[in-house]
Amino acid sequence: MTRLFWRAAALACVAIPTMAFAQPIGEAKILSGQAVIETDSGYVFVTGPERQMGTLLRMPEADDVVQYEEEWAKQLARVQKKYPSKLASWESKKAAAEQTKAKVPDRPIEPTAENFSIEPIEARNAVTFGYTSIYNKSATPRSFSYLTKMKPGRYVYHGPLWTGPEGSMGTCYCMGSVAFDVKPGVITNIGNFFAVAASAGQSAAAAVDMAAVNYDLPASLQALPHVQAEFHASGKFDNFFRGTVGRMPAVAGVLAYDRDKVIDAKTGQMAAGMMAANAPPRTAADAVTTTDAGKAGEEEVTEQVSTQP
């Protein structure tokens, strides 16, 4: 177990550079002007009555897929190059084991295009926010808020789960969730929606109390460009981080369920999922809305930034 732990630790260190870029921002940095709303970055604001954590998965776009395939091919070539020496080493160990009547180790699996996998493309663009990295907090009313800078795109709410190189913990909304666009140059305001959703529990009949959802922003953000998140139903995805299995409670007008079928309440049809194997990646054509919104945000931000020291 100890050997497994340290091997995993070493691999995790290698993995850190592949984790999606995300940066928590504190209120002091906004107030002092050290942090500004950049026109090519997205920002997500989340609040709630208690500290919280959550993970967002950016849906793969066409260039992500190209990059992923290139890396997969490179890694496959690498392990295929290593295979002959692995096999020779195993044959040597096998011979030694047979002589001493010890257990023969498993023969190494030959890497092929059919059996070789690297981490899921959907999991590599994960952004985790919370728990201690707050934007601000207040005692009355009690609130803890989070502002996170991230790459623009469409994000699926993975659920109230923490993931990082040290491990993962929390709930995966693998069996149904919501997606929303994070547009460049503006703050996408989630309000306390995630916190209200979490308080609804995980029973099959659970529903988000939309009357309890608010999108109040701290005074320090009110003058900055912001939009309220528009939620869309999002279908099932794998439990990438081995969290507790769950789903986003039903959301009136957005997300419904027929047993475990995830229904887009806007259309009455089954919701599209985020898995790249089922749904082709978003493309430049799909990013038109994002770019337009970014231009609008850029103008507003320029105006705001001009007042910053």
């Binding site: 497994l4 732990f5 091997r7 995993a8 630790a9 691999l11 995790a12 290698v14 993995a15 592949t18 890396e71 997969w72 890694q75 690498r78 392990v79 290593k82 692995k86 190494p108 699996i109 890497p111 059996n115 070789f116 996998s117 690297i118 981490e119 899921p120 999991a123 590599r124 993931t163 990082g164 190189p165 040290e166 491990g167 993962s168 439990n239 990438f240 981080f241 081995r242």
Partner: peptide, 23 residues
């Protein structure tokens, strides 16, 4: 297989969710 190649071959790109839970 992702875990297998991560652990046996030290593939950096394979160190994802399957690895995270080990801690």
């Amino acid at each position: 297989m992702t875990s297998y190649y991560a652990m046996q071959y030290g593939v950096a790109g394979a160190a994802g969710g399957a690895l995270g839970s080990l801690f």
